[in-house]
Simulated scan of single mutants.
Amino acid sequence: MELVKNLNQSSIVKTFLIIILGSLALTISAKIKIPFYPVPMTMQTFVVMLLGLSFGYKIGLATVSLYLLEGIAGLPVFSNSPEKGVGLVYFTGPTMGYLIGFLSATLIAGTISSNDNTVKVISKLLLSVSTIYILGVLWLGTLIGWDKPILEFGVYPFLLAEIFKLALLVIISKKIINLRKFI
Score class of each variant (00 low, 15 high):
Gly85Thr: 07
Phe158Lys: 00
Leu53Val: 07
Val39Asp: 02
Phe102Lys: 08
Ser65Pro: 03
Thr92Leu: 15
Val137Ala: 14
Glu83Phe: 15
Gly87His: 06
Glu2Ile: 14
Trp146Gly: 07
Leu143Ser: 05
Leu160Ser: 10
Ala161Thr: 01
Ile20His: 02
Pro35Asn: 00
Phe102Ile: 00
Pro94Leu: 13
Val77Cys: 04
Glu70Gln: 15
Ile34His: 07
Leu126Ile: 00
Leu99Cys: 08
Gly145Met: 06
Ile176Glu: 07
Thr111Val: 10
Pro38Val: 13
Pro38Ser: 00
Ser81Glu: 15
Leu68Ala: 04
Leu125Lys: 04
Val48Trp: 09
Ala73Asn: 06
Phe91His: 07
Tyr133Met: 03
Tyr156Lys: 11
Ile172Leu: 11
Leu68Gln: 02
Ser29Thr: 11
Gly145Ile: 14
Tyr156Asp: 02
Ser130Asp: 06
Leu107Glu: 05
Thr27Lys: 05
Ala161Pro: 00
Gly97Trp: 08
Ala73Lys: 07
Gln9Cys: 09
Leu168Ser: 11
Arg180Val: 09
Gly110Ala: 13
Leu99Gln: 04
Val86Cys: 04
Gly87Lys: 07
Phe46Lys: 06
Val86Ala: 01
Thr45Lys: 09
Pro94Trp: 08
Gly145His: 04
Gly110Ser: 10
Leu17His: 03
Gly87Ile: 12
Leu51Met: 15
Lys5Asp: 11
Ile18Val: 15
Gly71Trp: 13
Thr106Tyr: 11
Leu126Trp: 14
Ile100Asp: 09
Ile34Gln: 06
Phe91Trp: 09
Gly97Ile: 01
Ser128Pro: 06
Gly97Leu: 10
Val89Ala: 13
Val121Trp: 03
Val121Tyr: 03
Ala25His: 01
Ala25Trp: 01
Val137Ile: 15
Ser23Val: 12
Ile144Asn: 00
Leu107Ala: 08
Leu26Arg: 05
Pro38Gly: 00
Leu169Asn: 02
Phe55Val: 10
Phe164His: 02
Leu151Tyr: 02
Phe36Cys: 01
Leu88Asn: 03
Ser128Asp: 06
Thr111Ala: 02
Glu162Leu: 04
Ile134Cys: 07
Met49Cys: 14
Gly52Val: 14
Phe78His: 07
Ile32Tyr: 12
Tyr67Phe: 15
Gly93Lys: 03
Leu179Glu: 08
Phe36Trp: 02
Phe36Gly: 00
